[in-house]
Amino acid sequence: MAHLNATERRKARVRRSLRAAANGRPRLSVFRSSKQIYAQIIDDAKGHTLASASTMEKDVRGSLKTGATVDAAAVVGKLIAERALKAGVKDVIFDRGAYIYHGRVKALAEAAREGGLNF
């Protein structure tokens, strides 16, 4: 970890604490770019993505003006919860990455909780 920038260090710190608290639960990972937001449910034991959703998908893009809003994040949160339940995943651990739990990241998390995910 010698040459990581501040963002990568913060992300690694969050992941380290998540791994300790996960108890075998899959991780709901969020990536937020300036124009889009992406979410994945990852089984770290196997290294597989169990479900994913983003504002880049055709059906989501049509209903939104831009992928960079709190509303767009909420749509992705509902979608990831729906797909996770279909894949048989109910309990996850939330991985905010290097982002603070605020705004789009918070909106995605709350929508996923409303959709039926436990974390």
Rank of each mutant, 00 (worst) to 15 (best):
A98M: 12
G103L: 12
S17Q: 12
L108T: 15
G24K: 09
I93K: 05
K106M: 14
F119D: 14
D43M: 05
S33Q: 09
G24E: 00
A21H: 12
A21C: 07
G115A: 10
N5S: 10
D91G: 11
V75C: 02
S54A: 00
G97S: 04
M1R: 14
R15C: 07
D59R: 08
A39N: 10
L50A: 09
I93G: 07
R19H: 11
L4E: 13
V105Q: 15
L28A: 01
S54L: 03
A45W: 04
N5C: 15
G62C: 02
G103W: 13
V70S: 14
T69W: 07
R13N: 00
G88I: 01
E57G: 00
E8V: 02
F31G: 03
A112N: 08
R13C: 01
G62F: 04
V92R: 02
R15F: 01
I37Q: 02
E110N: 09
A45P: 03
F94H: 04
A51T: 01
R15A: 13
L50V: 00
Q40D: 07
G24P: 09
Y99C: 11
I80K: 02
N23Y: 08
Q40P: 04
Y38C: 07
V92T: 10
A109Y: 12
G62T: 03
I37V: 14
L4W: 12
D71S: 12
K11F: 04
K86D: 13
R32W: 02
I100L: 15
S34M: 13
A45V: 00
K78M: 09
F119Y: 13
A112T: 14
D43H: 02
K65H: 07
D44A: 06
K11R: 14
L117G: 13
S33Y: 09
E8N: 05
Q40G: 02
A87P: 08
A22T: 05
V76I: 12
K11Q: 14
S17D: 07
S63C: 05
Y101D: 09
K46P: 00
D44V: 01
L28T: 05
R13W: 01
S63M: 10
R13G: 00
L108H: 11
R13H: 01
A51I: 00
A72I: 08
K65A: 08
R15K: 15
S54E: 06
R104K: 15
D44F: 00
T69Q: 06
H3A: 10
Y38E: 09
G116P: 05
F94P: 07
S54C: 05
D44R: 09
A87N: 08
A12I: 06
K35A: 13
K106E: 15
V92E: 05
R10W: 09
T69K: 07
M1Y: 06
L28V: 12
A81M: 06
R61K: 05
Q40N: 05
G116V: 02
T49L: 09
R61G: 03
A51N: 01
A21D: 11
D59N: 14
L79Y: 02
R16Q: 11
S34H: 14
K65V: 10
D95L: 08
L4C: 03
G97D: 07
H102M: 14
D91H: 14
A112V: 15
V105C: 12
